[in-house]
Amino acid sequence: MVRKTSDIIFDFIVYFSLIFSCICILFPLLYVVSVSLTPYAEVIKNGGFMVIPRKITFESYILFFKESRLPRAYMVTIFITVIGTFLNLLFTTTLAYPLSRKNLPGKNKILFMIFFTMLFSGGTIPTYLVVKFIGLLNSVWAMIIPGLVNTYNLLIMKNFFANIDESLFEAARIDGAGETRVLVQIVLPLSKAILSTIGLYYGVAHWNQYYSAIMYIDDSDIQPLQIVLRQFLAGSENDITKYNPDIEVAPESLKMTAVILTALPVLIVYPFLQKYFTQGVMLGSIKG
């Protein structure tokens, strides 16, 4: 097949823009990596900006792992990500499945009540009070339970379940399966795509958990990674401490190390889940 000039130009434009946007994304990452690896004196000698490090030191990485708060913050974040995502999925599926069945009495009313929370929220202080009265303050569960079911994710999942062919359920029921069995043995195996998609949504949200920690956690021993990271990057910039000569701002290399160490796990997990990710979103939206 002969390629037309217009095709070649089209391909060229597509490749060019893709490569260009790739560079735009990779360049800052590369900069972050190289700053984290370069001694400060070297940065200054090279005009403060360098992409390929000439001298490499792992000093800031070693410093970081000696830093006492980090390993603990990692444990906290891993805990809330793993346990939190599991609980999220458990509760989201068990709520989404019945709501996806047409014969559920009062379905629309329940759905409306759930949907209502997307439009109006209780506000910061009332939510804080609820968490306080439940007794979750200063506990890792404060970062898991208040956001156990995300309405948006629930609706996606409900729609996915609703698109599964009704005859499958009928067949299962004829074979004597109860609702639980239908859910576990029929619906869930068919929903791997949506489960991993929603799981990824939840997982990333937990990994980036910041707001609930800021709100509900006082104890520095159970603060998650992002809080520790922020402290490194921004310090405590408020008017109480602004002009204090004792303040030590972390050097640039340490800041960049912090960025890498917190972003890396998500960066590693993403490609493995990506195939489900695209598949999942497509299935949820197109089918039906």
């Binding site: 708060r69 520095s220 402290q231 405590s236 408020n238 401490t241 972390a250």
Partner: peptide, 9 residues
């Protein structure tokens, strides 16, 4: 308030 280099408790 916490310092930038605040250690674990």
């Amino acid at each position: 308030s916490a310092a930038t280099n605040q250690p674990a408790k």
